[in-house]
């Protein structure tokens, strides 16, 4: 990677997370290009480099952002509600990661992966309020990126 693409990738990452943290969903490729005053082609290439570096996960067909971890660009079973907006985490780890990243009080709404019963986790002043329940990991850590969307 040369210096100019490295610099562009830093600017893209900053804008992507700035937008995502402000509103809960990542920007589109076109909006990122607009925001940086650069071409969609350059941003598409930057998205691909950031995805290769496991910073972003892209939707295979469109090249748009699917995950700006811990945020999901699409609805998932892990809804994170703040006072000012709601967004989605990719899994319970990421749903809690959204709260950790924003450092604001939140309520996570999900369901039991076993029986489907609704579950709610509240985090207030960075403290877990309702520590009932468990998280299950099927795959060992070394295999997580074999298929990160499935995992």
């Amino acid at each position: 990677m040369n210096q100019s693409s490295d610099d562009l990738d830093r600017r893209v990452r900053r804008l992507v997370y700035d937008v995502t943290l402000r509103r809960g969903t990542p920007p589109t490729l076109a909006a990122t290009a607009d925001g940086l005053g650069t071409s969609p082609q350059q941003v598409a290439a930057s998205f691909q480099r950031l995805a290769a570096g496991r910073v972003l996960v892209l939707a295979g067909d469109s090249g748009e952002i699917l995950m700006a971890n811990p945020f999901s660009a699409v609805p998932t079973p892990f809804l994170v509600e703040f006072e000012d907006y709601a967004g989605y985490g990719n899994c319970i780890w990421d749903a809690m990661g959204v709260v950790a990243m924003r450092r604001r009080d939140a309520r996570i709404k999900t369901s039991c992966g076993d029986c489907g019963a609704p579950m709610e986790v509240q985090i207030v002043s960075q403290a877990l309020q309702s520590p009932h329940g468990v998280a299950h990991y099927a795959l060992p850590a070394r295999r997580w990126w074999d298929d990160i969307v499935f995992n």
Binding site: P70, I92, W93, D94, M96, G97, V99, A100, V121, I123, Q126, L128, S130, P131, H132, G133, V134, A135, H136, Y137, A138, L139, P140
Partner: peptide, 14 residues
């Protein structure tokens, strides 16, 4: 697989 308590999960997320 592995089971985490929500407290462990929160510590990991942070």
């Amino acid at each position: 697989g592995a089971i985490l308590t929500l407290d462990q999960q929160w510590k990991l997320a942070q």
